[in-house]
Design a protein around this nucleic acid. Structure first.
Length: 360
DNA sequence: ATAAAATACCGCCAAT
DNA sequence: CTATTGGCGGTATTTT
C-alpha cells in the first residue's frame, strides 16, 4: 500500500446523497477567543487536502468587526471578515471565549441574530467546548441536547434549564446543532461532521494527516439524536465488539459475514461504508493495537503475544507491526519499558537496520 | 528471502 | 425507475 501522500490527486468525493452539504464554513471568533479551539476549525477545514481525496472547503474567519481580535492568550488574531459570510455558510462554527460561561457575559452585537438566521435557513451550527454557552445565549439551544466541557456541565444546566445537557460524551448532535466537550473533542466533532457529509474515507483521510484516531469513543458512544435515523452508522457495532472479543481466534471474512448474517459481498460493502476500511484490514489494525497494549503491559514473549492477538506466528506479528507502526515489537516495548530512554525511538529508514540487528 | 497456495478485495452485472 | 444485493472473476495482498 503506497502512502497516499504521494498519490496523484484523485477525483474529489462529492457530498453523499441525502447528506447535508459541507462546503462553506464560517468560524466566528470574538474577543477572548481560545486559540486552540479556533485552530481546530482551521486545521480541519482550512487546509487544502485535495491531494488526499478530501474536498476543498471554503473557510471564512469571521468576527463581529473585521480586524484584530484579542485571544485569551493575549496575542491578536486578525479576522479578515465580519459576520457576512455567516449568511451563506453551510456550517457555522463558534469558538469559545475566556468567559463564555460567565452569566454576565454578553454576546457581541449581531452574533445571536446571525446564528438564529443560520438555523432558520437550514445551516448547521457547531460549538466547541464552552461555546455551548454562547449558543445557548443566542437562543439556538432551547429544547435541544448539548454537551460542553465537563467542568462546565453543571453550570450550563443551571443557567439554561431548557437545554438538555449530556455529560460524558465527546460530542452531541441534535438536529442542526452540534456541540463538543472539552477542548480536543472539537476535533472529534469536526471529524463527525465530515463523516456525516462525505463518509468515513474522507474523515479518515483527514484524521490520518492530523495523526489523530479516526474515531474515539467517549464515556458512552457519542450521543447522536436523530429523529429519523439518517445513517445508523452503528449497524455493525455489535459485530465489531464481537470480533474484538475474539481477536485471538481465526477471523476470516466469511466468518464475520456469517456472524453479521450477510453475504460476504454485502458485508464487505457495508463494512467499507460504515468503517472506511475493509474487514480484514480492520482486524489487522485491531490485532496490532492489542499487541501494542500487551507489549506495554506484560513481559510475555513475542511468540505468546502473537498467538494471543491471533497472529499465526511471531513472524506475522512482526511483519504487520512494523508495517503499521514503523518499529519492531521489541523496539516498541523497549521504548515503553525504559522510563528514561537514552535513545529516541527509531524512525523509519534511519536506525532501522541497526535496531533489527540489535534486537534479533 | 522466495515461491506457492490461500484469502481478501473490488468492479461489474444480473437479479431482486 | 432507483437502490440494494450478492455472485463472478481478475488482481492484490496475506499466509505458509
Amino acid at each position: 500500500m503506497a502512502p497516499s501522500a504521494a498519490a496523484p490527486a484523485r477525483h474529489l468525493p462529492s457530498t453523499r446523497r441525502g447528506a447535508p452539504p459541507l462546503q462553506r464554513i464560517a468560524v466566528i471568533i470574538s474577543d477572548g477567543v481560545a486559540p486552540f479551539e479556533f485552530s481546530i476549525a482551521c486545521e480541519v477545514f482550512g487546509i487544502d487536502r485535495t491531494a488526499d481525496g478530501v474536498p476543498r472547503f471554503n473557510l471564512d474567519i469571521c468576527a463581529p468587526q473585521p480586524g484584530p481580535v484579542r485571544s485569551s492568550i493575549g496575542f491578536d488574531i486578525i479576522a479578515p471578515s465580519g459576520l457576512e459570510p455567516v449568511e451563506h455558510a453551510d456550517l457555522v462554527i463558534v469558538a469559545p471565549v475566556t468567559n463564555s460561561a460567565d452569566p454576565e457575559y454578553r454576546l457581541p452585537p449581531g452574533v445571536a441574530e446571525a446564528l438564529q438566521r443560520a438555523v432558520a435557513r437550514g445551516a448547521r451550527i457547531a460549538g466547541f467546548c464552552s461555546a455551548s454557552f454562547l449558543l445557548a445565549r443566542a437562543g439556538v439551544l432551547d429544547g435541544r441536547c448539548a454537551t460542553t466541557h465537563w467542568m462546565y456541565a453543571d453550570l450550563l444546566r443551571e443557567q439554561y434549564p431548557q437545554v438538555c445537557v449530556e455529560p460524558d460524551v465527546l460530542y452531541v448532535e441534535d438536529g442542526p446543532i452540534f456541540t463538543s466537550a472539552g477542548t480536543a473533542a472539537g476535533i472529534d466533532l469536526c471529524l463527525h461532521l465530515v463523516r456525516r457529509s462525505f463518509g468515513p474515507e474522507v474523515a479518515n483521510a483527514i484524521a490520518r494527516r492530523m495523526v489523530v484516531p479516526p474515531h474515539r469513543e467517549g464515556g458512552q458512544s457519542q450521543f447522536v439524536k436523530t429523529p429519523v435515523a439518517v445513517r445508523p452508522a452503528e449497524t455493525l457495532a455489535p459485530l465489531l465488539d464481537w470480533a474484538i472479543e475474539r481477536l485471538h481466534e481465526d477471523l476470516p471474512v466469511v466468518r464475520l459475514a456469517k456472524q453479521a448474517s450477510m453475504s460476504p459481498r454485502t458485508f464487505a460493502r457495508r463494512f467499507q461504508d460504515e468503517t472506511g476500511t475493509s474487514p480484514h484490514t480492520w482486524v489487522l489494525v485491531q490485532r496490532v493495537t492489542l499487541a501494542e497494549r500487551l507489549l506495554e503491559s506484560s513481559d510475555a514473549p513475542i511468540e505468546e503475544i502473537a498467538s494471543r492477538c491471533g497472529f499465526g506466528s511471531a513472524t506475522m506479528l512482526r511483519h504487520h507491526f512494523t508495517k503499521l507502526r514503523g518499529t519492531t515489537p521489541t523496539a516498541y516495548r523497549r521504548t515503553f519499558t525504559c522510563s528514561v530512554p537514552d535513545i529516541l525511538p527509531p524512525r523509519p529508514g534511519t536506525h532501522r537496520s541497526h535496531e533489527l540487528t540489535a534486537a534479533g
